[in-house]
């Protein structure tokens, strides 16, 4: 059950997408997501769908992984599609039965929103699949570093983020262990009323919290032992450098997104 959580999960690889500069990847992802929402005609969404498909092929990430990251969103997808499909009044009614009416606008909008959300998730998942958490926070830190001049604690924020990301799999593993241990003592989490199930979470959540605090304390101690004292005067072992592939990647994405946005405004 818990294995379904793929958000923030890195899929190691050696493709040009993996090797791209995380800063560029973050910026391009943002651009891509924004341009998705500036397009109002589903026809113009064909290009980004193909684009994302090609990128997944280049990154060699199995489709199964993409489907997995979409799975938790299925209820939302169904909800928005149904709302748009049945309750958006339009000029032409395509289908009507009892209280249900499907208009041309409703159908178009439903398709539009569906493709938008799928592309949104696929695009942002691609970022986390091809970028290790460390590279990701590194990129964020560098992108936000101008804010440091305004006394914004950029380094601290980035460190907190990388620690949080780092501990997601650890805590998932821990949760599974605790669940097994309590199941072995006869804890019943699968049956019973809602209140009973909520109560059954207590034997899992308390040990989990305790262990999270214990880990945090140990980590803080270990960091202090290695003389960690924040970002001031800290240099990096791995310097981020831009390569030719970053230029090409940016160029292609900017042209695609620029085209989408331009068409969205023109039409």
């Amino acid at each position: 059950m818990l294995n379904d959580i793929t958000l923030g999960q890195y899929f190691p690889g050696n493709s040009p997408l993996h090797k791209m500069d995380p800063r560029i990847k973050i910026l391009l992802t943002v651009l891509f997501v924004v341009s998705l929402f500036l397009v109002s005609d589903p026809l113009f969404l064909i290009a980004p769908v193909i684009f994302i498909g090609i990128l997944y092929l280049i990154a060699r990430i199995p489709v199964r992984f993409l489907l997995k990251s979409l799975k938790p969103l299925i209820p939302i997808l169904i909800f928005t599609t149904v709302l748009n499909l049945f309750f958006l009044p339009g000029d032409v009614t395509l289908f009507s039965f009892w209280v249900i009416q499907i208009s041309d606008k409703g159908l178009l909008n439903a398709i539009l929103v569906l493709i938008r959300i799928v592309c949104l998730i696929a695009g942002s998942s691609l970022l986390t699949y091809t970028t290790s958490p460390i590279a990701l926070t590194d990129g964020i830190e560098r992108l936000l570093s101008p804010l440091g001049k305004l006394k914004f604690p950029v380094h601290d924020l980035a460190m907190m983020m990388s620690i949080a990301l780092r501990f997601i799999p650890t805590l998932i593993e821990e949760t599974e262990k605790i669940m097994s241990a309590q199941k072995a003592r006869g804890a019943d989490m699968e049956t019973g009323s809602l209140v009973q199930r909520a109560k059954a979470l207590v034997p899992i959540l308390i040990p989990l919290l305790v262990s999270a605090f214990r880990r945090a304390e140990e980590l803080a101690l270990a960091m202090e032992c290695r003389c960690y004292r924040g970002g001031e005067g800290r240099t990096r072992m791995k310097q981020l450098k831009l390569h030719l592939r970053d230029l090409w990647g940016s160029l292609i994405t900017v042209i695609l997104c620029g085209g989408m946005i331009a068409l969205g405004f023109l039409l």
């Binding site: 262990k177 605790i178 097994s180 241990a181 199941k183 072995a184 006869g186 034997p203 040990p207 305790v210």
Partner: peptide, 17 residues
Amino acid sequence: VRFSAGLVFQYPEHQLF
């Protein structure tokens, strides 16, 4: 079955709550 075969995990003190 889980009652008739009791399993104590590694570091079982982590399950106390």
